[in-house]
Amino acid sequence: MIDWFPIVFFTFKLLVLGTGMFFAIKWHYDQGRKKGTETRAVLRAGGKVAAVFVLSLLGLGLVTFVFVRMLGLDLSFS
């Protein structure tokens, strides 16, 4: 029984992910064909997401740096 689990699990996983990808691509394709989509709004939203990502990354780096210094770990590159 346990020998069949990886085969069944990965087959099921491929089917579910494949179906999900098909419908996601189809939905995006159908949305792109609709009239009146505003490119400017999409670019603005993408810029906001990118800015939040970069700020989160910088914040995580700062918190990590402070935590490492607080623990007294060596930060030298040599």
Rank of each mutant, 00 (worst) to 15 (best):
I2R: 07
D3E: 12
W4S: 04
W4C: 01
F5T: 12
I7E: 14
V8R: 10
F9M: 04
F9N: 01
F10I: 06
F10H: 09
F12W: 03
L14W: 10
L15C: 02
V16R: 04
L17Q: 05
G20V: 02
F22T: 07
A24Q: 11
K26C: 04
H28D: 09
H28F: 05
Q31R: 14
Q31S: 08
G32Q: 08
R33H: 07
R33M: 07
K34V: 09
K34S: 05
K34R: 15
K35V: 10
G36V: 05
G36D: 13
T37Q: 13
T39H: 12
R40Q: 15
R40A: 15
R40M: 07
V42Q: 12
G46S: 09
G47L: 07
K48Q: 08
K48F: 10
V49M: 11
V52T: 07
F53A: 11
V54R: 07
L55E: 05
S56W: 05
S56C: 13
L57I: 04
G59M: 11
G59V: 08
L60E: 04
L60N: 10
L60F: 15
L62F: 05
V63T: 04
T64V: 09
F65N: 09
V66Y: 13
V66T: 09
V68Q: 08
V68W: 10
R69W: 06
M70V: 07
L71K: 06
L71W: 07
L71S: 05
L71F: 06
G72P: 02
G72T: 06
D74Q: 07
D74H: 03
L75A: 03
L75V: 10
S78W: 08
